[in-house]
Simulated scan of single mutants.
Amino acid sequence: MNGSQSAVIFIIDDNPANLKVLSQVLEMSGYKILIAMDGTSGLHRIHKALPDLILLDIMMPGIDGFETCRQLKDSEKTRDIPVIFMTALASSGDKVKGLSLGAVDYITKPFQQEEVIARIELHLKLRRLTQTLAEQNQQLKAEINQRQKVEEHLKILSRATEQSPSSIVITNVNGVVA
């Protein structure tokens, strides 16, 4: 079992058979599973336990997968969670629409277990790498800010010594001029 397999996967699908098969496959692979049978309940539940990835059916009663995805991507809390659409719709227009709404991938039904696992692992890895990169960028920004403060302080000291009417001599600890 690798690190991505302890991830939480949220499945939103109105088909009980799909939910059962996906849940079993993913649980056998070590993932934790959350389930919703429609977009509305999925949107309500997702804020209580933020998943690492969402598998989202397109054709559902009430709000469809496209609208569910749009609302997920509009929310600051859920916008960075990867969404993979699961659909029997294989038209380019549907794929383009889903990707333009912020989905990261498509799985066509009926799905192959190995393909589902491979796509999930890929997008979980990409998410972890993106998060690591963001953390490193924050650290670099903090370091740059600290260096800028030190540089500004050195400029002030330099101006003070240049404009001082007194002589300044720098020596080592033994009093020898450096």
Results as ranks from 00 to 15, higher is better:
Tyr31Gly: 00
Glu135Lys: 09
Ile84Val: 06
Glu151Phe: 14
Ser91Glu: 11
Asp13Val: 00
Glu151Asn: 14
Ile12Asn: 05
Gly98Glu: 06
Ile168Ser: 03
Phe85Tyr: 10
Asn145Lys: 12
Lys141Gly: 09
Lys155His: 11
Ile63Thr: 06
Asn2Val: 13
Leu43Trp: 08
Ile12Gly: 03
Gly39Met: 09
Gln113Ala: 13
Leu72Asp: 07
Asp13Trp: 00
Gln113Ile: 15
Lys48Pro: 06
Val177Thr: 15
Leu124Pro: 04
Lys20Cys: 00
Lys32Asp: 05
Gly102Tyr: 01
Glu76Arg: 02
Leu55Arg: 01
Met86Thr: 03
Ser6Ile: 11
Arg147Glu: 08
Lys141Met: 12
Glu115Phe: 10
Thr87Pro: 13
Gly30Phe: 05
Gln71Met: 15
Ser92Trp: 04
Leu129Gln: 15
Leu22Asn: 04
Val177Gly: 10
Leu140Met: 11
Glu121Arg: 15
Ser6Gly: 11
Ala178Leu: 14
Lys73Trp: 12
Gln24Val: 05
Ile120Val: 15
Glu143Trp: 06
Ser4Gln: 13
Leu22Met: 10
Ala7His: 12
Arg127Cys: 06
Ser158Arg: 08
Leu50Trp: 06
Asp38Trp: 02
Arg45Met: 09
Arg147His: 08
Leu154Val: 01
Ala49Leu: 11
Ile120Asp: 09
Ile46Ala: 03
Ile120Ala: 07
Ile54Gln: 07
Ser41Val: 08
Gln136Glu: 00
Arg147Gly: 07
Leu124Ser: 02
Gln163Ile: 04
Asn172Leu: 10
Glu135Ala: 12
Gly39Ile: 02
Ser91Asp: 04
Ile84Asp: 01
Leu101Trp: 14
Ile33Ala: 02
Ala36Leu: 03
Arg159Cys: 02
Phe66Glu: 11
Ser91Cys: 00
Ser23Gln: 01
Val8Arg: 12
Ile54Trp: 08
Gly98Arg: 10
Gly42Gln: 04
Gly30Trp: 08
Gln5Asn: 15
Ile54Tyr: 04
Gln113Ser: 13
Val25Thr: 05
Val176Ile: 04
Glu114Lys: 07
Lys20Arg: 01
Arg147Gln: 09
Asn174Ala: 05
Val116Gly: 00
Lys48Ser: 10
Ala49Gln: 14
Phe10Asp: 00
Ser29Glu: 07
Tyr106Glu: 10
Leu122His: 14
Ile11Ser: 10
Cys69Met: 13
Glu76Gln: 06
Arg127Thr: 12
Thr132Arg: 08
Gln146Met: 12
Asn174Cys: 02
Asn15Pro: 13
Leu34Trp: 01
